[in-house]
């Protein structure tokens, strides 16, 4: 049973990598979701400058593969005089991707709030600010949340691209163990299991949350 013996030997390094992968996911969501909120409102804005700036930001973020953005931040920016650490440039790149994709989900959610409820609030005499705060945003978030959670799972898997810019995440740990022991099969099976152990329950969780949220709708 050399697989289990190897697994036991590789696991600490792989778990260390997993921790970095999760950290990168969390940081990207932490910065990316507020950015997405701003962009979603930017796209809806009647101000043409704000509108087109947001559209451009979102379209580039969704149009360019995450790998390209990542390489641009790490290898491209130093040429322009800005050098970031591997972790910082990966966070920046994935924040952009997160902001761009989630802006679209949020925008969809916000425009999915029934017009009648907005009119209900307006007819009561609520200010536009209050209508956004109490009616549109809470409900828009609810509508968008399943897509956002689905995106978070994909983002977690996308962090594996960060191995190309030397971030010591799970994929890069697996790769370095593989290249020093030549036990690629074992180590990538293990890495795959670790990714799945997070991704699959997270997907279940998102289905559960969706059901709970729809209870009152």
């Amino acid at each position: 049973m050399t697989f289990f013996a190897d697994a036991q030997e590789f696991l600490p390094a792989l778990l260390g990598g997993l921790r970095v992968s999760l950290l990168l996911t969390l940081l990207s969501l932490l910065f990316g979701l507020p950015l997405a909120t701003v962009l979603a409102f930017g796209i809806r804005s009647h101000n043409p400058v704000l509108h087109w700036l947001s559209v451009a930001f979102v379209e580039v973020g969704r149009g360019a593969p995450a790998l390209v953005v990542l390489q641009f931040m790490y290898f491209g920016l130093p040429t322009a005089g800005l050098t970031l650490s591997a972790m910082a440039s990966a966070t920046l790149a994935l924040t952009w991707t997160t902001g761009a994709y989630c802006a679209e989900y949020l925008r969809g959610g916000l425009s999915g709030v029934p017009q009648g409820e907005i009119e209900g609030a307006e007819a009561l005499g609520m200010t536009w600010g209050d209508t956004l705060r109490y009616i549109v945003i809470p409900q828009g978030w609810r509508i968008a949340l399943p897509s956002l959670m689905g995106f978070a799972v994909i983002l977690f898997q996308t962090t594996s691209l960060a191995y190309t810019v030397t971030v010591p995440e799970l994929m890069s740990q697996a790769y370095s163990i593989g290249s020093s022991t030549f036990k690629y099969l074992t180590v990538f099976v293990l890495a795959g299991i670790l990714y799945a152990m997070i991704s699959i329950p997270a997907t279940w969780l998102s289905v559960l949350v969706e059901k709970r949220l729809n209870k009152h709708l």
Partner: peptide
């Protein structure tokens, strides 16, 4: 002004065909 708009709306209450309650 917005203030005038809200002041006018405060004088009225409206009931809609489809209720328009806040479901959340």
């Amino acid at each position: 002004s917005k203030r005038q708009l809200y002041a006018l709306r405060r004088e009225t209450g409206m009931v809609f065909q489809h209720f328009n309650l806040f479901p959340h």
